[in-house]
Design a protein around this nucleic acid. Structure first.
Length: 256
DNA sequence: ATGGTTGGCTTCCAA
């Protein structure tokens, strides 16, 4: 049975509610990972998604961060506590659905290279790799998705030379990201779209979207076994051009 | 290209 998995940093769930509901009604999304929900659990609009048929898993805080998984299929198990990796911030959720496990992660931004925020980011990425080593094997069907806040390769940014030491493309971040990927992941967008330039984030400032000055920092990664069943992976760029957009576009992977 | 937009909350922080 074919199904789809998507990720979208909505930059505030409540500010994006109309656009998100429009999007969910015009696409067929079976499992959706959201980041930067920016809403405390007590104020999460769970019922709206349940009315659409989704099972809802969320973990948030006031004003910052926050993650959510919506699934048309029931959760077989869930995990919300990743204290050693994320610290006090609400950034990671894990759920087992059908025959796979999905991890939704909102990686730290990092602010400026070499800052304390930067090393929190590096530690987060390396901590996630250690967690995977301890909890999953290469035969598991595993998806790691979310806003990674790192572009992997030169093709994934609008100007690799200009951005060579910028946050999101700094060599130290890309090194950590490669280490994480070498757990055994396939980058589904790159797997399905060889040599295609595609971005998932454009700064709100400087008319970046109009000039298409973006970065591919939101990813859907699959373990090798699971990647074999991926038929298509696209960036839904149209959503970035709508009124009151998030600064990120959704990424959708289709499996069959 | 070296500026300035957005969201949440508040007189600024994070992205």
């Amino acid at each position: 049975m074919p199904f789809s998995i998507a990720t979208w940093n909505v930059n505030s769930l409540r500010a994006r509610m109309d656009l998100l509901l429009y999007w969910l009604k015009s696409r067929k999304i079976d499992v959706l990972c959201l980041q930067e929900t920016k809403v405390e659990d007590g104020q999460f609009p769970k019922e709206i998604f349940e009315e659409l048929g989704y099972h809802v898993l969320f973990k948030g805080e006031k004003a910052y961060n926050g993650v959510c998984i919506l699934s048309m299929y029931p959760f077989k198990s869930i995990k919300k506590d990743f204290g050693n990796i994320e610290g006090e911030q609400k950034r990671i959720l894990e759920a087992s659905i059908d025959d796979f496990t999905i991890i939704n992660a909102y990686f730290p931004h990092g602010k400026i290279p070499d800052s304390s925020s930067f090393y929190y980011k590096i530690d987060f990425v390396e901590g996630l790799r250690l967690y995977l080593d301890e909890n999953f094997g290469s035969n598991d069907n595993l998806i790691l998705t979310g806003d990674f806040n790192i572009a992997p390769e030169e093709i994934d940014v609008f100007d690799a030379d200009f951005l060579k030491n910028a946050i999101g493309f700094h060599p130290r971040e890309r090194e950590a990201l490669l280490y994480l990927k070498e757990w055994g992941f396939i980058d589904l967008f790159r797997h399905c779209n060889k040599n295609v330039k595609g971005y998932t984030w454009w700064d709100y400032r400087n008319s970046s979207f109009k000039k298409n000055k973006g970065m591919r920092i939101d990813h859907i990664w699959a373990s090798e076994k699971m990647a074999e069943h991926c038929k298509k992976c696209i960036i839904d760029k149209e959503m970035r051009g709508k009124p009151k957009p998030s600064d990120h576009a959704p990424v959708i992977a289709e499996f069959g």
